[in-house]
Design a protein around this nucleic acid. Structure first.
Lengths: 192, 192
DNA sequence: GGAAAAACGGAGGACACACTCCACTGCCGC
DNA sequence: GCGGCAGTGGAGTGTGTCCTCCGTTTTTCC
């Protein structure tokens, strides 16, 4: 990683200049990421600091508010997701879209943090949403143009639907997948 | 209302015998219901007591734990829902089912409490789930038998899907409705 | 009407978590 | 190497919520 702000998304927090500080910064981000994923956004910040092997003071210096920390984690995940959109570029329209959605599901699904905070609207959140849409929307549009996805649905509709579905509890991962499939069938045209 | 336990569902808490106490019990339940609906299950119990016009002590006497209070509220809502199933009994199969789902959505949708705690499994929660399924499942089965709903989906699948979808945030109620429609199309057969 | 029993309510102790502050530590540039 | 200063960490303070306890009030029953 280079040491400038890696993208407009994460402009909120600055990665520090000194080597040890940078190390701590990264450790915190990683710890927060798993903590948010496994226990939700409410995780005590002290726990995160401890599991990063760092004092609480250090956490606060890097991320003055819980929101700043959350934003930083979130920005990272969104970025990964945007990259994924490029990987599917040369699949056929519907496959490209649904593969990207799979990616979306596995990034977002296990980590409930994102759906938890979905309605927040910080500046950073708007940026993230925009970036994500720029990545995913073309894929959906292509599926629509190919006559594979219904035209009365917007990309936003689909994303919210998916987000909702994967955020609930299921008996098994298998059930989650099945249910997702049903919902996608409702988006796809010329099916069944 | 009579003064015995109104159903097996709410066996957890006892409605008190004395008139004033019973009044407070009901006020608390009502206050909790709106509070949970509007601010989620995390609402401070003191707020609920205050908005019921009752001391915190009274709340605790009636509902020794937050869970007990939540269970009581939840039980009430589930009961209403079960009744709704009877009202649609003589509509055509798919209409009956989707009308009941509408009911389900308007009971559950505005109040995010239920979906929040969906994965909890207290004894009471199991009962509620069972009651709800007894009410709704026949409607779904009928739609399946009439060839209107796909056979590879279970009632449980549908319910979880719906719950997930309505629990997320939307730009407008109109969007929520639209998205729900898409998802239901994925469940329905012989469509589009 | 009065006594016993039931219920009330809110002050206050306990706790969990957010966030600050500052004496100490160890990088980095010279 | 070494001095200055960015960075550290955790003890300590503040806040908000849970929950208990008990003197006071209300109801019920005779």
């Amino acid at each position: 990683m280079d040491d400038r702000t890696p993208s407009a998304l994460s402009a909120v927090v600055r990665r520090p200049h000194r080597a040890d500080a940078r190390r701590n910064f990264d450790k915190l981000l990683a710890a927060a990421r798993t903590a948010f994923a496994e226990q939700g956004t409410g995780t005590p910040l002290e726990d995160i600091a401890r599991s990063a092997g760092v004092g609480i003071g250090t956490l606060y210096r890097n991320f003055p508010t819980r929101q700043a920390l959350f934003d930083a984690v979130y920005a990272g995940e969104v970025e990964e997701l945007c990259h994924a959109a490029q990987d599917v570029a040369d699949l056929p329209p519907w496959e490209a879209f649904s593969t990207w959605l799979d990616r979306f599901v596995s990034y977002v699904g296990t980590k409930r943090a994102i759906s938890e905070e979905l309605n927040r609207d910080s500046a950073m959140f708007r940026d993230a949403r925009k970036a994500m849409y720029e990545a995913g929307e073309p894929l959906f549009a292509r599926a629509q143009e190919a006559g594979e996805a219904r035209r009365d649905a917007s990309f936003d509709d689909v994303l919210r639907m998916i987000t909702g579905i994967i955020a609930t509890g299921y008996v098994s991962d298998e059930q989650r997948g099945r249910v997702l499939g049903f919902a996608l069938d409702g988006i796809r045209t010329g099916k069944n």
